[in-house]
Structure formats: C-alpha cells, structure tokens
Amino acid sequence: MFIKILTKTYGGKKHYYASLVENKRIDGKVIQTVKAHLGPVAEEQIPYLKAAYSKKKPKLVYDDD
C-alpha cells in the first residue's frame, strides 16, 4: 500500500488530496484499488504521509550537529 497524492488546480491555486492505494495483479495486469480517501492535505504534510506508509522509513528530522 502507498499514499497517492492528487493535485487539482482551482482559480490558480493548487489543492492536494491524499488516498491510500493498494496494487493488485489480476490476470497479469496491475490494478490500483483505493482503500481510503484521506481528504485534503497541506503541501507540507505530503512527505510525512508518504514516509508513514513507505517500506524503507526515511529520516525526516535531521540534527544540526
């Protein structure tokens, strides 16, 4: 499963919407199934949402040392 971000532009302003998506292989074809619509998200939240569902957890907070 992964987070899919959809970008829509209304009146020149970008809006971001997140969905939880699962890939399945059916008859040799990959089908994406939306498991949950998470709704609108701020642009700053996108990397954190993607990191939460990634297999390799990236380090998102860095020390200033």
Rank of each mutant, 00 (worst) to 15 (best):
L60K: 05
D64Q: 12
L20F: 08
V61I: 15
I5V: 13
Y10C: 10
P47F: 10
A42D: 09
A18S: 00
Y17A: 07
V30F: 08
Y48N: 03
F2K: 07
K35Y: 05
S54F: 02
H37W: 09
K35Q: 11
P47A: 10
D27K: 12
G28W: 08
A18W: 02
S19E: 15
I46A: 08
E22Q: 13
I5M: 04
T9A: 09
Y62F: 12
E44R: 13
K14A: 13
A18P: 00
I46N: 06
K29E: 09
P47N: 08
D65M: 07
A51W: 03
D27E: 10
G28E: 03
M1N: 00
V34C: 04
G28I: 02
Q32K: 15
F2T: 02
S19K: 10
E22Y: 01
Y48K: 06
Y53Q: 14
L49I: 09
M1D: 06
I46C: 07
V34A: 09
P58G: 05
K13M: 12
V41L: 05
H15R: 15
V61Y: 13
Y53V: 12
I26R: 09
D65N: 08
S19D: 02
K4R: 14
L20N: 02
K55H: 09
L38G: 03
L38R: 02
K56C: 00
A36V: 01
K59R: 14
K8W: 08
T9P: 01
K56G: 00
P58T: 02
P40D: 13
L6Q: 12
L38E: 00
A52P: 01
S19Y: 13
K4D: 04
D63H: 05
S54C: 04
A18H: 00
D64M: 10
I26N: 07
I26V: 15
V34Y: 05
G39V: 03
V41Y: 03
K35S: 01
D27N: 14
K4G: 05
H37G: 15
K4M: 05
P40C: 14
K50Y: 06
I5E: 06
F2S: 03
F2M: 07
K8E: 14
M1C: 08
D63K: 14
L6F: 03
S19W: 05
Y16I: 07
K14D: 11
I31V: 15
K57Y: 09
K35H: 10
D27A: 07
I46L: 05
P40Q: 15
A36Y: 08
V30N: 12
A42M: 11
N23C: 13
A52Q: 04
P40F: 13
N23E: 14
